[in-house]
Structure formats: C-alpha cells, structure tokens
Computed example of a mutant assay.
Amino acid sequence: MIAPQLTHALAGWLDHCRALNGASENTITAYRGDVMGFLAFMQTHHGDQVGLGPIARITTGDMRAWMAHERGRGVGARSLARSLSAVKTFYRWLSDREGFEPTAVLSIRAPKFTKKLPRPLEIDAARAMIDRVECQATEPWVAARDVAVVTVLYGCGLRISEALGLTGRALPLPDILRIKGKGGKERIVPVIPAARAAVDAYARLCPHDLTGNAPLFRGIRGGPLNPRAVQKVMELSRLQLGLPASATPHALRHSFATHLLTAGGDLRTIQELLGHASLSTTQAYTSVDSVRLMEVYDAAHPRA
C-alpha cells in the first residue's frame, strides 16, 4: 500500500502542475497514472509499503528494473519515455521539498525512439477531403455540419477538441476567434471566409438550437458532436479518395501549418496560430521540401 504522506505529496505535485504550469486535465490524468504505476511497481519490487523513506532511497538498479518491467508488459519506448519524464518531474519536485538527493532517478536516460513526423495532406487532397465529406451523410444538415467542421480544422488549424468546443456564442463566426487551447492558454486565430461560410450554411440547416453556451456542432440527436463521428466521416472519405491512413482530422492541422509555411508564412507566427509553447513543436508540424526551403533561403539571404 502506498503511504498516505506519499499519496498526499502526489496530490500536491499535481496541484502544482495544474496551477503553476497550466497543465490540462488530460495531462494531469496522464501524470497521475504514470506516477501511480511507478509507485505501485516499487511497492511490489521492494515488498513493502512505499513511503517517503523508500522513495528517497531508490537506486539506479530500481529504476532499470521498473523500465524493464514496463517494456516486458508491452509498453512502447515512446510511452515509457513519457512515463519516465513524469516520474522525474515528480521526483525533482519531491526531493526539493523533502531534501533528499534525486540523482539516482534523474540520471536515468529515456529509451530512444524514432519520432514520427506528421504527414500533412497536399493542398489538392485537403480540398478534395472537404468536398468528399459532404457526400457521406444523407441528411443535408449533417452533410453541412461535416463540411463546416473539416473546413474549420483545416482553415483555422484547430485541434478537434477546440473545434468541437465552440459554442453557439461563436455565431456568426467573427474574423477573429479566441481559442482556449491546452493548459487553458488562449490564442487568437483568424477565420478565413470559407470557414465562416461553411459554418453559416450549417447553422441555417441545423434543426437544433445553437444559441448560448450550447455546443455549436451537434450530433444526430442534438447532443455534442463526438470526435469519433468526425474521424469516421474522414475515414470513409479518404478511402474513397485513395488517401493514406494518415489523413485524419489532426492531419488537417498539420496541413494548415505546412501550407502556410510553404506559402511563405513566418514560423513564429504559425507557432502563435497553433498555440505551441515551443517552436520545435511547430517545426515538427510543418513539412516543406528542400526545393521550397532553398527558394525561401535565396529570397531572404543578403547578397554581396
């Protein structure tokens, strides 16, 4: 059994992450699961209650045993690296509070893994996707809804949770949207005319009340639209268009960033539009071929 003082410490760390670091509830849930899994292993590993004392005495051997156990039960390198990061962050916070030496934990290296680069759609494929999703539904308002959602994802670079989080108060869509993203961070996103027109067309046909704080995008029965419904309509459309499995709702966000950069957009500006805390994250979301990069370089580089 995990000692009460350690459970209390974990709760305190999660509150710290939530209040000072702006972590989202999904992140908090992931952190809690990662650290609790680690502590549960240490309890079994040592055969005793896991309290502050045993935690302060964890060795590199203990850490390697935990990582081997995780890999043995099928946890991938990427997921294990995430769990290790959460454990290290918690351990650093706890050691500062309790005054013990954290080197044994902090010195453990994360397993190596190959980062999967996002695969944005080509411009023609993105347009074809918007046209094709309209053909999947038999009810006109549902077809208009699907077009509106996909157009907003691609035209504004929103996460699907952000798009489905819009309420009736957003109608009619303004030129600028204030979007609250991960960690409650707010950003300003311009709305292109095509997105405004698509949402207006959907709002005119939708049989449900779209006023106030009610969800803007609705399911068949009037409840909030499930992300899975958007994923499914895109799956059907990509199969009909012969597009790869990577043509997902999130790929439209990648495509938004990549196509802006290809058109000469500034990486820092795109970072702001996407709501990324780190520029390196934005770089991973963009994909520009070497020819285009050389064109930008030649246009910008000072010549003698």
Rank of each mutant, 00 (worst) to 15 (best):
R71I: 07
Q43W: 05
A110P: 00
G53R: 12
L158Y: 07
K182V: 12
M67W: 01
Q49S: 11
S161Q: 06
L236D: 11
T151W: 06
V87C: 01
A68V: 09
R228N: 09
L10H: 07
H259M: 00
H8V: 10
R204S: 10
T138Q: 13
R119M: 10
E272D: 14
R71G: 11
R73N: 09
H46C: 07
S161T: 09
M36Y: 11
D289C: 02
L94V: 04
A148N: 08
A77H: 05
I192W: 08
N21R: 14
K88G: 08
A251D: 02
L260G: 04
A197F: 02
H46W: 10
Y297Q: 08
G22L: 11
G12V: 05
G265W: 07
F217E: 00
A300F: 04
A214H: 14
G53I: 09
Q136M: 13
V105T: 10
G37T: 12
G99N: 13
Y285C: 01
D298L: 07
A197E: 15
A126T: 07
S246T: 15
L39A: 02
V191F: 04
R64V: 10
G157T: 06
L177S: 03
A300I: 05
I192Q: 15
L121S: 01
R187F: 04
A304P: 15
G181W: 02
R97I: 11
R64M: 11
H16Q: 12
G33Q: 09
T167N: 05
A299E: 11
H8M: 13
P249T: 02
K185L: 02
L239F: 10
K88N: 06
A277M: 07
P190H: 06
I123W: 12
E98T: 15
A304L: 15
D175A: 14
K116I: 09
C156N: 01
V189W: 02
E134A: 15
R78P: 03
P244Y: 04
D96E: 15
P224T: 12
K116W: 14
L260V: 05
Y202D: 04
R119D: 08
A214K: 15
G155E: 09
I192A: 14
P302I: 07
L273W: 01
T258F: 00
I55L: 15
H259P: 00
A86G: 06
Y31E: 07
R78S: 08
A110D: 00
E186T: 09
L121Q: 02
